[in-house]
Amino acid sequence: MFDALEIVTTVITGLMVGVEFSVAFIVNRIFKALPEEAGQAGRAHGGRMLGALMPFWYITSVVLSGVWAVAGWDREGAGLVIVAAGLLIVSVLMSVLLLVPINNRSVTWTPENRPADWKEQQDRWDRYHYARVGVIVAAFTLLVTAIA
């Protein structure tokens, strides 16, 4: 049963990392290459879709990592799992404090109502997102290492 917990936690967290990595290094670059209105509309739509899904994914990863840390307290690699869970908590805090406020504004933007600084806000979101991706990649790496 413990092996199943390790695998499920690692797979769910790894898939989340893959999606967020893709957003950072593929999807948003595609949107930036599109004509301005199309790129902004694509980001708004993506923000609505992923904004509805990602909170559950992040919380699930945190909860599963926490359960793993508690259940495997006396096992080898427990320290790595604890640090990974801590990093996932940091990523949730980053999301709530830095990324979600920008996302909540940008999902409503259209070419007619977007603010004058919309590009700067998107660039700020991207910078925060790159940092968050670094945090969750580190957490995922620790989870994988804890299994080995």
Rank of each mutant, 00 (worst) to 15 (best):
M1F: 14
A4Q: 11
L5T: 01
E6H: 11
I7T: 13
I7V: 15
V11Q: 07
T13Y: 02
T13W: 00
G14Y: 04
V17Q: 01
G18N: 04
A24P: 06
F25C: 07
F25M: 10
V27L: 09
N28D: 12
I30G: 08
F31D: 05
A38N: 12
A38G: 03
A38H: 11
G39V: 01
A41R: 05
R43C: 06
R43K: 13
R43A: 13
M49E: 08
G51F: 04
L53G: 06
M54Y: 09
M54T: 02
P55H: 07
F56D: 11
F56A: 15
F56E: 05
F56H: 14
I59P: 03
V62S: 00
L64K: 00
L64R: 00
L64I: 03
L64Q: 00
S65F: 00
G66D: 08
V67G: 03
A69V: 02
A69S: 10
V70N: 11
V70Q: 09
V70I: 14
A71V: 13
A71M: 15
W73L: 13
W73K: 12
W73F: 12
E76H: 13
L80G: 15
I82E: 07
I82P: 01
V83G: 02
A84Q: 00
A85D: 02
G86P: 01
L88N: 05
V90L: 12
V90H: 01
V92Q: 07
M94L: 14
S95I: 06
V96C: 06
L98W: 11
L99K: 11
N104I: 01
N104V: 01
N104D: 15
R105H: 14
S106Q: 14
S106A: 15
T108V: 15
T108R: 14
T110L: 06
P115F: 02
A116Q: 14
W118I: 10
W118F: 14
W118N: 06
K119S: 09
E120Q: 13
Q121E: 11
Q121S: 11
Q122V: 05
R124W: 07
Y128R: 06
Y130G: 04
V133A: 04
G134W: 09
G134M: 04
V137S: 02
A139P: 06
T141D: 09
T141F: 12
L142A: 09
L143A: 06
V144L: 12
T145S: 15
A146E: 03
A146G: 06
I147S: 10
